[in-house]
Each structure stands twice: as structure tokens, then as C-alpha cells.
């Protein structure tokens, strides 16, 4: 977990100062949002409690809610 946070910190330190210096605020917001989500996912995986797979959620929605799909 510490190694994961260290790696994320290194990547953030390599990207964020450049974005701030060049005043690319829109990019910084998008990067931060995606990076936060990536950090959440990676941390959950590291701690052994991964979030549900979105692909499986889609499969449930298509198969069991919409009842679309080939049978068998």
C-alpha cells in the first residue's frame, strides 16, 4: 500500500507541477478526477476489496434487466 501511494505520488509530482505552471486548469481538473478514481481502484485492489466490475454490471443489466442476449 505504501509502495502504491509512493508510485502515485511520484507520477502526480511529475505531472501536476507542469499543469499548474502552464495554467492548464481544465486539464488539471480532468487529471485530478481520473487520478483520484484510479487511486481509489488501485487502493481497493491492494487492500483486497476490489469494487464490482463495471463490465459485470453491464452484463447483469443487459441479460437480467433488459433480457437481451442469445440463449445459451
Amino acid at each position: 500500500m505504501i509502495l502504491l501511494l509512493a508510485v502515485f505520488a511520484v507520477i502526480a509530482l511529475s505531472e501536476v507541477p507542469t499543469l499548474i505552471r502552464e495554467k492548464r486548469w481544465r486539464e488539471l481538473i480532468a487529471f485530478s478526477a481520473l487520478y483520484g478514481l484510479a487511486l481509489f481502484y488501485a487502493s481497493s485492489l491492494t487492500l483486497g476489496a476490489p469494487p464490482p466490475s463495471p463490465i459485470r454490471l453491464i452484463m447483469y443489466f443487459i441479460k437480467d434487466v433488459l433480457h437481451i442476449g442469445y440463449t445459451g
Binding site: 499543469l19 492548464r24 481544465r26 486539464e27 487520478y35 484510479a38
Partner: peptide
Amino acid sequence: IKSYRSLVIPI
């Protein structure tokens, strides 16, 4: 967003 490059790593 002008440049996509900084978005590559999080994605």
C-alpha cells in the same frame, strides 16, 4: 482539453 497526454496515465 487541449492536450490529451496528461490523461494517459490515470486512464
